[in-house]
Design a protein around this nucleic acid. Sequence first.
DNA 1: CTGAAAGCGCTTACAG
DNA 2: CTGAAAGCGCTTACAG
Lengths: 364, 364
Amino acid sequence: MLHILCRAARLGAEVEQEVVTQRDVARLAGVSVRTVSNVVNDFAYVADDTRARVQRALDELGYRPNLLARGLSSGRSGLIALILPLNVPYFHELSKYVVDEAERRGYTVLIDRTDGEVARERALVGRTDRSALFDGIIFNPIGLSEAELPPQSADTPVVLLGEKPVGASFDHVQVDDVAAAKAVTEHLIGLGRDRISAIGQPVRARSQTARHRTDGYRQALAAAGRDFDPDLVATVRSFQRADGAEAMTRLLESGKPPDAVFCYNDLMALGALRTLLSKGYRVPDDVALAGFDDIEDGRYSTPTLTTVAPDKHQIATLAIDLLTRRLDGDSSPPQTCSASWKVVPRESTTARSSGQHESAVQNG
Amino acid sequence: MLHILCRAARLGAEVEQEVVTQRDVARLAGVSVRTVSNVVNDFAYVADDTRARVQRALDELGYRPNLLARGLSSGRSGLIALILPLNVPYFHELSKYVVDEAERRGYTVLIDRTDGEVARERALVGRTDRSALFDGIIFNPIGLSEAELPPQSADTPVVLLGEKPVGASFDHVQVDDVAAAKAVTEHLIGLGRDRISAIGQPVRARSQTARHRTDGYRQALAAAGRDFDPDLVATVRSFQRADGAEAMTRLLESGKPPDAVFCYNDLMALGALRTLLSKGYRVPDDVALAGFDDIEDGRYSTPTLTTVAPDKHQIATLAIDLLTRRLDGDSSPPQTCSASWKVVPRESTTARSSGQHESAVQNG
DNA sequence: CTGAAAGCGCTTACAG
DNA sequence: CTGAAAGCGCTTACAG
């Protein structure tokens, strides 16, 4: 296939680029590699003229450190692995903050996609052969529960993100899913809706997250003196748009359609929204809709999407804080940090009509 | 802040996990490290009983290879860097294919976000200190033009993705932006629309991509005997939803609003859609809308979004093909491969009314 | 089929 | 402030 699709070009002489080592630089500058290393790593106690001479040689030869060699001998690579399901926008938004925050502290973040597949999560976390490669790991499990994770190894600290921790063997940054789910359900109840559905309970329940959000949903109902109706809870296989769309279809066809729906993430809410609008329902007039995550998509949908907004910046900062402490040698007991969140009401629950809207783009 | 938000747990005895080396394994199995290495790397010509004995020692000690050491001595890390603007969904969708395809060939892809910032792109590509870390690089520049890239170095092959190459010094996988933009504009013309706008010309024109799409747009107009009206072209700062939303607002306020709009990517089209719907315009009745990229969002918006769908799977396969050839020692001239694409008409240009729709989710 | 040994490019006590 | 040297954990010609 390649030969049909590809077009070759004439090539100039291939420059066989030699690798420049500290030894080469040392030779040119007339010093030892020790001194070159000192200059490269910006150590104090290098005579000014020596430094200048070495720097000149460094520039002249175009020296570039070999990260592998440095890592092998120093025991630190400066690399952090961020293991996430990139197929959910929330995580890509979160990753931006993690990357930026890590960079500020001199670390480089490399992203590993799990896409929420349990097998991939297991494989990635199980790959302890990487422990030499990465100084630390930030991991947001989706399919894997904390209990299934290999025990924390002393050499590569792991910070867990996401659901409330079960044990206490990892550093952890959590969002209080129960409280947040309860708050957004209360918002729906406050609208005066009667039949409030929940979309997101997984078919095979592994995820604590979904369980917690269901708990919050039920607590809000109970607090309002409402009965819990299992028929109003729709299960899903994953947290994608298609799952939300299908679940919504099932609810609508159930005979007694809901007048409000809490989806366990924005992606599913967007799928549910598609189903509702395409079947002629008005949102929020006929059905009010709320999600979770506060992804950008929900600020541009029509209607815009009411959601729970976890403080992504704070989550990232806390995660990097926790990790860098370990990297700096802190061996105190594992900590659990809570990031804040808030309910952001938008058109999908508050607008009067689903047609004309006041504000083009409202950002909670 | 941390002390307020965090809760510490009691910790069990910290297991000081010793690193197990091949030497340890060799000692236990009564062989040399050479033989251990042979077994670990699954070389032929190891006596069955020796292999079994070594394997037992390997298991017993829980040996894990040190990737850094392996990389340093072998010169290959098995790692590929994928440098992309993750803040555009198209690229995260593309990255999935690249990761999967690379994995099939035994490589691990680590993702680096550029988010389209020229400075980040420059920094990442300029970081030749990484050449030891990565066997190869797949890079989709957004801000940087090919001419600004450092020359291809012999030790770390680079495959470029995206816009039509200017020079011919890199392996390249391109999509024919001119032809695709022309085709989608023709689709709009075929609808019988009079005033067809284009959104996406950058304020400071660096990107060839936008230039090519404008070329295609103009070619389609010319071929249909239409005049090119500069007032119908709206510029943007980046390719995000907000840019599309703002550009659309400007076009609507220009006095003579368009009745069709070609946005240079789906993200901007979604922003433009938001502006249109929130101002009471019907899509496609009043304004037909088309994007580029075929991201999932556009299959769930209401109306669903007409778009150009590049074959992402093919792009990924071609990129990995090209790269692995170089890694296998091929030093033939740089090649340019073209990936296919097609126009996918959806509701935003074809539906009769913007209210009720036929198909809930139609997938091109 | 396997061993002894050099070497990948760097960092880092140890001296001085 | 700087040098000579060991060592990080692995791979890989070179012998045998």
